[in-house]
Nucleic acid binder design. Sequence first.
DNA 1: GATTTTTGCACCTAGGTGGAAATT
DNA 2: TCAATTTCCACCTAGGTGCAAAAA
Lengths: 206, 206
Amino acid sequence: STQPGLVPGKAQVYLCNRPLWLKFHRHQTEMIITKQGRRMFPFLSFNISGLDPTAHYNIFVDVILADPNHWRFQGGKWVPCGKADTNVQGNRVYMHPDSPNTGAHWMRQEISFGKLKLTNNKGASNNNGQMVVLQSLHKYQPRLHVVEVNEDGTEDTSQPGRVQTFTFPETQFIAVTAYQNTDITQLKIDHNPFAKGFRDNYDTIY
Amino acid sequence: STQPGLVPGKAQVYLCNRPLWLKFHRHQTEMIITKQGRRMFPFLSFNISGLDPTAHYNIFVDVILADPNHWRFQGGKWVPCGKADTNVQGNRVYMHPDSPNTGAHWMRQEISFGKLKLTNNKGASNNNGQMVVLQSLHKYQPRLHVVEVNEDGTEDTSQPGRVQTFTFPETQFIAVTAYQNTDITQLKIDHNPFAKGFRDNYDTIY
DNA sequence: GATTTTTGCACCTAGGTGGAAATT
DNA sequence: TCAATTTCCACCTAGGTGCAAAAA
């Protein structure tokens, strides 16, 4: 914790698959939302350093509105179209399943949110907190939160500086019920192993 | 916690799939062990009551030798055959992945050990504690342990009565690298969904 | 009519079965 | 030769994809 250049108590976070996120971001990332919940692809995954190895932390992701607009895909482009629906509804927080845990645990390996699911079903908030409820055709920004907690896992809000929030603009996305931009569809097919069956050259290379 | 007939501080544990365990037990249950690890079938699953909802507990299974014999299947029967190999080696404890957690959590739903794996690979002890290392042709007895812990998850051995152990004789089994008793094989095929392909009437009923 | 959402589907990934043959 | 173990396999379960048609 006394490495040169590091502020004590200040965590460093790196987005693991940033090059892939950037490929999508160039075309305006879209994420499918469904009633039963759909995983993100790419999914959020981080490396973290600068924690106190013996302290305890909760680590979670939330998803907030990235701008005040309702969006529509028209003429091959995303264009703002009226105000965002800001009626608050449903859970938008996903606690990492390893929480709470020690700084040593969180720094040992990649912190991956591959099982986080996005839904448009407002009644899905109770599903073990595995679902984040979003509205279609709105733009969202995921955030990572690192919260130092007491040894019993409870939060101590009286002490300042125990909550750190990290935002990666390249992870912004528009929630959709069906892909709009065919460039995005092709990137999903090319990189998501579960979509391998849709690759043009599938029979050529396997 | 003031239900009639219940001793305060004393947990009650029920084996969930006891009728199935008994079907196997009548024929002397066998469990396959492999290098990469094999799940148990049936697997251990419990309902628990009588915990303090707000106290914290670790819940884990261990597997101990059920008798001092080496066993062999001869003439259609299991017969003792020399002494058990008692050289201590490898991990025989499987902590439930939800540990540590509150009494309320443990009592809310079935506590299932479906992902516990059995292996004969002594070097497999380090695999995230997911593997229990056993010796082939020895008879074993799984046990359930409920340990009240401090709020930070550490054990307090100075206080008595914070460890409770439960043993269900119908869950005894002999570890094997290949099934010996065809009655056991047939019970596995009939009841394990992953073995459905081996059912005689598979094409008739699907 | 046009847009958005839902449903059923073929096609994958990922991994748990016992059988049979090969190995020890 | 015999007993025990390992390896490879076809066949499942379980569930994550985008597509196309249907529904809203």
